[in-house]
Write a protein that binds this DNA or RNA. Sequence first.
DNA 1: GGATTTCCCATGAATTCCCATAGATTCCCA
DNA 2: TGGGAATCTATGGGAATTCATGGGAAATCC
Lengths: 162, 162
Amino acid sequence: MALEHLFQGSALNAVDAKGRVSIPAFLRSVIERRGDSRTIVLAKHEAFPCLSAYDPGYAALKHAKLERLLEKEETNPDAQLEYQQRNLMAFAATEEVPYDSSGRILMPPMMRRKGEIGDLALFLGTGETFQIWNPKALLDEPRIPDDLKDIARFRLEERGAS
Amino acid sequence: MALEHLFQGSALNAVDAKGRVSIPAFLRSVIERRGDSRTIVLAKHEAFPCLSAYDPGYAALKHAKLERLLEKEETNPDAQLEYQQRNLMAFAATEEVPYDSSGRILMPPMMRRKGEIGDLALFLGTGETFQIWNPKALLDEPRIPDDLKDIARFRLEERGAS
DNA sequence: GGATTTCCCATGAATTCCCATAGATTCCCA
DNA sequence: TGGGAATCTATGGGAATTCATGGGAAATCC
């Protein structure tokens, strides 16, 4: 799997009273170059207290991988169960949300809670996917490198000052 | 087999006194993009105490899958029997129900019993198909990952609070 | 004819759509 | 190359639509 277009960069956007957030234009352009969906898939990040996001095509790719794995071990009952569980996590525990003509999504309440997102959303490109953080949570996270926290601080300043 | 449109997301809907349930709009849209039937096929899930559901087109696909599996082991008499059994389950033990203009099905009493569905139905997308659970049964099921149970709890809360 | 089943309408909440704006960025052309 | 115009981006607010759900009328069945 060699993805041609990668997510990179960072931005800090507001979540408004209705729960709407603008997806940064530089991330949207990657989504639209990968497919033509104007839609993102949201999931709780498996390790960090934040959200993981990607385009629907990437989700399908992940699914195809799981399928192939299953067919190899079709007769193994343990493999069956693990397949069921992973499939549930990959699809039931995620939400697909379209963004409108102005590039905004409505952050689903469940994801907002799971990702601890308040009224500011920090977007971080990570190549194949991107992450959405509560900037406070990122600064409090010991496993995050200081250089990255500096970026978060900068984005906060930038916004606080203007 | 590469299905283009996958079932994704979760929702908790009420089963009313007449046995009617709304199929969540985001699942309906997948059904209608896969074919043009406004119909779902219900079956008892093969492993979990819940229902498995999909569009009529997928049933045909499943049949082809079984056929292919049989041909691989044509000489094995055990495989023949298993094929017969799985084929029976896939077709005799299912019910096809249309949904009306408001997106509701009438849950067939037999399926309701088999799936242990009470007056709340939890819908979980799993890619090629989706599942319908009694939320209580899901919380009691040891083979279900905790993160998924959290989602069920969230959906219950969301509904209880409002 | 009583009971079930199907259809149709009603409704409140949620969500999508549309328009507006202000600031930043890019473009363009003299 | 400099400055001004056009465009794009993030954001706000309100209107219009969709969604889930309840209730009842009409049709159907033994």
